[in-house]
Nucleic acid binder design. Structure first.
Lengths: 123, 123
DNA sequence: TCGATATTTCGAGAATAATCGAAATGATGA
DNA sequence: TCATCATTTCGATTATTCTCGAAATATCGA
């Protein structure tokens, strides 16, 4: 897994191809649901089987989707004896969001003033 | 165009299907480039032909991609005599980002402390 | 070692998306 | 009105992705 990376303050061509993968991964009903489920689950994450059952899709299909999300750097997996635990990858998500907001206002904060309110995590 | 919408402070099922469309729209090399080009271009936007030429794809292909982005609520078009001007839709983008960050920390700001630095638009 | 459980990989068919030339639409100026 | 330009829509081909059962892998407990 290559995963996301930043080069200095500006992002390179390479990040765009990674971002495309990440966005495409999230651009699917089932996978977006899974990702959000894992974000909600927090550090505890969820087992692969649990995820498949919650979404109502066969294990093999879900395995594909989870692999897709993992290759995109949006989730991480860890084997725990017989089960495999999946967690959201916060760093990957953060990099994706940063990439999307890059150059969003060309130095003019008025253009994207509204964005300020997004990042504030309101409990 | 239905476009993005918020219902109160929490987002509904309907927003997920819209978000999938938006993410899928951005999950394509050419379309992501176009969207970023339009974000960089600011309120002035760019003409359809100009965009196609810059990306090196035929006009008809680009028209498809632009339509895709527009249906997803990420760009808007406006006819100006003979040309058609496309602009990034900041509101659509903002809604998408908000959707992605929803419930990101389950009330525990420590979990996504890093997100705070993203929204700051640094000229 | 064997049987049971959890998950992934394989393989193939069905569904969806991307591409681009040709033809249609809309707007302009001579 | 007509020729021209910018863009979209149509139509058909190719490429990619989705899906899921069956088989393979990995781990455990008896």
């Amino acid at each position: 897994m290559l995963g996301p990376m930043l080069t200095g303050t500006h992002m390179t061509q390479g990040n765009q191809v990674w971002a495309v993968d990440a966005l495409q991964a999230l651009g699917h009903e089932t996978r977006l649901s899974v990702f959000r489920m894992l974000v909600q689950a927090g550090p505890e994450g969820r087992m692969a089987g649990e995820i498949a059952q919650a979404c109502g899709v066969p294990a093999s299909t879900m395995s594909h989707h989870l692999g897709n999300l993992e290759r995109a750097g949006l989730v991480a997996s860890q084997r725990e004896s017989r089960v495999i635990r999946y967690r959201a990858d916060y760093a990957g998500m953060r990099h994706l969001l940063a990439f999307l907001m890059e150059d969003c206002c060309q130095g003019d904060p008025l253009l994207c003033a509204d964005f300020a309110e997004i990042s504030a995590c309101k409990p």
